[in-house]
Amino acid sequence: MTKKNWLALLVLFTFQFYAQSNDTLRLNFKVNFDKFPLELNKKFITTKKDTVTLTTFKCYISNIEIQYSDKTVFKQKNSYHLIDLENPNSFQIPLTKKNDKQIARVIFNIGIDSLTSTAGALSGDLDPTKGMYWAWQSGYINMKIEGNSPSCNTRKNEFQFHIGGYLQPYYAIRKKVFTVNQSATKHINIGIDASIFFAEINLAKTNSVMIPGKIAMELADISAKMFYLE
């Protein structure tokens, strides 16, 4: 094949990629700290006047569902997505082909359901190498927030929040339901504000949660407040 033909093929594939991308309804996530984009290894000031530096921010989004105003519903198959601040590509989740319908609600879970947690090691975003799987007894970590703060009386002033649990009474998955009221020709934009998490905890007292339990349940409730419709 000549160089000219290769270039023609490259142009064709590029055009098809962008055409498909623009024709697909997406769930777009943006991670912030108050009004500023959240960046790893950058200092932020909380409402409690703590200085925090995040080194890890990951969370699972699962079981995404789109409800239209005509009562039809789109449920994404194999709907497990890891939002990772180190991977900007993870912020965009393709859903389905755009259409002229009006979206009424978008629904998703923060975390991984009990059935999937007990299914054993899986692939893709559920691969244990992603660092979000404890073991079959505890399942997946729904949200992981790590970093450091002078307010933490710990080794290297570190804090570690691994929020999860799939067994009652410590079932830490949380459901979010947003009323959207927009055309399905537009993407759905969801914000995640990490400052809300730190506004509700005392880092001097609570700075390490690594197992399912009562405190993890409380942190799961707080983490659900971080999500908002833009």
Rank of each mutant, 00 (worst) to 15 (best):
Q102V: 13
Y140D: 02
Q16P: 00
S123M: 00
T53D: 01
I192N: 00
K48T: 07
P128K: 10
G164A: 04
F44R: 02
Y170V: 07
K101R: 15
K101P: 11
G147K: 01
F108A: 03
I112E: 02
L115K: 14
Q76A: 12
Y18L: 15
Y166M: 05
M226T: 03
I93K: 01
N22S: 14
L122D: 08
I83S: 05
N189P: 03
I107N: 14
F198V: 10
I83E: 04
K156H: 12
Y171I: 15
I201R: 01
N22D: 10
Q137F: 11
E39Y: 06
Y140E: 01
N87Y: 07
I61A: 00
T24Y: 02
N99R: 05
G213P: 04
V209L: 04
G120T: 05
S223V: 11
V106D: 00
V52I: 10
L167E: 12
T53M: 15
T118Y: 06
N181E: 08
S138Q: 13
I103Q: 04
F17M: 00
I196R: 08
F161W: 06
V52G: 06
D193C: 11
K130I: 01
T72L: 02
Q20M: 13
H81Q: 07
T46V: 07
F17H: 03
N32H: 04
K30M: 07
K144H: 11
I103C: 05
L126P: 01
Q160I: 15
K3D: 09
N207V: 06
Q168H: 12
T96F: 06
D23R: 08
K77I: 08
Q168A: 15
L10K: 04
N207K: 08
T53E: 13
Y80L: 09
S90E: 06
D23Q: 12
I141N: 09
Q76T: 02
Y18S: 12
G147V: 05
P88R: 00
E200S: 13
A104F: 11
M1S: 13
S79Y: 00
I215Q: 13
A204Q: 14
I190H: 03
G131P: 02
I83M: 09
T206N: 08
D100R: 11
T206W: 01
T46E: 03
I215Y: 04
P88I: 02
I141Y: 07
D23W: 08
N99Y: 06
K176E: 08
F74G: 01
K42F: 08
Q137E: 10
T154R: 14
N153C: 04
S151Q: 12
V11A: 15
D125W: 03
D84V: 13
F33S: 06
I222P: 03
K35T: 10
A204W: 00
G147H: 04
